[in-house]
């Protein structure tokens, strides 16, 4: 059986054909393909490395960003607190000043009112006095129109004066 005896003709053709095809592909086929595969592999590896570096940088940036945000937020709240304090202080000062001003105005008004009142009272008193004198004059005039009564009046007057002088002495 010739299954396990290699045939010389087939050996010959196999060497020739396989050899020729191999030489052709060695020259014009495989190296082109494998070298471009290799360069692409390198490129991919480089891209991956770059991506990893970028990722690390991104993480740093994100951390920085977060820290800056945090700082800004702290600063903002500090400023806000300061502003609130200042506002409160200004309002308090203003209140005190207003109070003082009001007090001043009030006391001034009070003194003025007192003065006015005093003046008014004086006027009234003067008027009353004038009126009292005029009334007294009129009463006296009426009283003194009668002679008896005039004499009595004079007597009482003298008596009164003398009593006053007695009491003084």
């Amino acid at each position: 059986m010739n299954l396990v005896t290699p045939d010389a003709g087939l050996l010959f053709w196999m060497v020739v054909i396989f050899g020729i095809v191999f030489l052709l592909l060695w020259k014009f086929g495989f190296p082109i393909i494998t070298s471009s595969l290799e360069s692409r592999n390198k490129r991919i590896q480089k891209s991956l490395d770059d991506a990893r570096d970028l990722e690390v940088k991104m993480q740093q940036w994100t951390a920085d960003h977060a820290r800056m945000l945090e700082e800004a937020r702290k600063e903002q709240s500090a400023i806000l607190r300061e502003a609130t304090d200042a506002k409160n202080r200004i309002v308090a000062d203003a209140k005190v000043q207003a109070q003082e001003e009001a007090d001043k105005i009030l006391s001034k008004a009070r003194t003025e009112i007192a003065a006015e009142k005093a003046a008014a009272l004086a006027d009234v008193r003067r008027e009353v006095a004038v009126l009292g004198v005029q009334i007294a004059e009129k009463i006296l005039r009426k009283e003194l129109s009668d002679d008896d009564k005039r004499a009595d009046f004079l007597d009482s007057m003298v008596e009164e004066v003398s009593r006053k002088t007695d009491s003084l002495s």
Binding site: A8, G9, L10, W13, F18, V21, G29, I32
Partner: peptide, 30 residues
């Protein structure tokens, strides 16, 4: 010494040619 183009030799030629063409087309692409 029998170097006849037998069935196997013809098949060998055809498939080797096919491989040659296929790989050269691939190389051409690159």
């Amino acid at each position: 010494f029998d170097i006849s183009i037998t069935k196997n030799v013809l098949s060998l030629m055809m498939s080797s040619l096919l491989l040659l063409i296929v790989v050269l087309i691939t190389a051409r692409w690159y």
